[in-house]
């Protein structure tokens, strides 16, 4: 009986290995985000240029937000970890954090809509439906790793 088990075991291992290797290869062949955007939403060269301009304009805003989020997150972590942080100081830091999250999500949403506005109405709708839910929602904009 055991003689008949090893081919099935080998087949199982082969199937799992084939699945993992194929996924790895497919992952490596995934296009970059701009290529995906161009292909998925059938963008014309003019639309691609316009969206690239929007990305260039958004980049410094995004950089600024990233730096501010990182420092606000570090500050909140430090305050929460300290045993004798005054409550008012912690509350102020949390309020500042929430304000920063609001500002970032609003800016990101505005950029998303600006990109969508460059597309045809049908593709724009698809783009917003597909990418919109992937952005951080306001209610989820809590500092990661903080209680």
């Amino acid at each position: 009986m055991k003689r008949w088990l090893w081919p099935f075991g080998l087949a199982l291992v082969a199937a799992v290995a084939a699945f993992a290797i194929t996924r790895h290869c497919v992952d490596r062949s995934m296009p970059d985000e701009m290529t995906w955007l161009r292909e998925e939403f059938a963008l014309t060269p003019a639309q691609v240029t316009a969206i690239e301009q929007l990305n260039i304009a958004y980049e410094p805003i995004c950089d600024d937000h990233c730096q501010r989020i990182s420092s606000a997150r570090r500050r909140l972590k430090t305050l929460e970890a300290a045993p004798n942080t005054p409550g008012a100081e912690l509350a102020a830091a949390q309020t500042a954090w929430q304000g920063l999250c609001d500002e970032c999500t609003t800016a990101t949403r505005a950029h998303l809509e600006a990109v969508a506005a460059q597309m045809s109405p049908e593709q724009s709708k698809r783009y917003l439906e597909l990418v919109g839910p992937k952005l951080t929602r306001r209610d989820l904009g809590k500092p990661f790793g903080l209680r």
Partner: peptide, 29 residues
């Protein structure tokens, strides 16, 4: 069968994964 399943899985989830990857490039949070 393993390769076929991987291709099917990737093609079903491709748009969702690319949309997530794209969202990560524009969302500072």
């Amino acid at each position: 069968a393993g390769s076929g399943a991987a291709f099917a899985y990737e093609s079903i989830n491709r748009d969702e994964r690319m949309a997530s990857a794209y969202a990560r490039t524009i969302d500072p949070l």
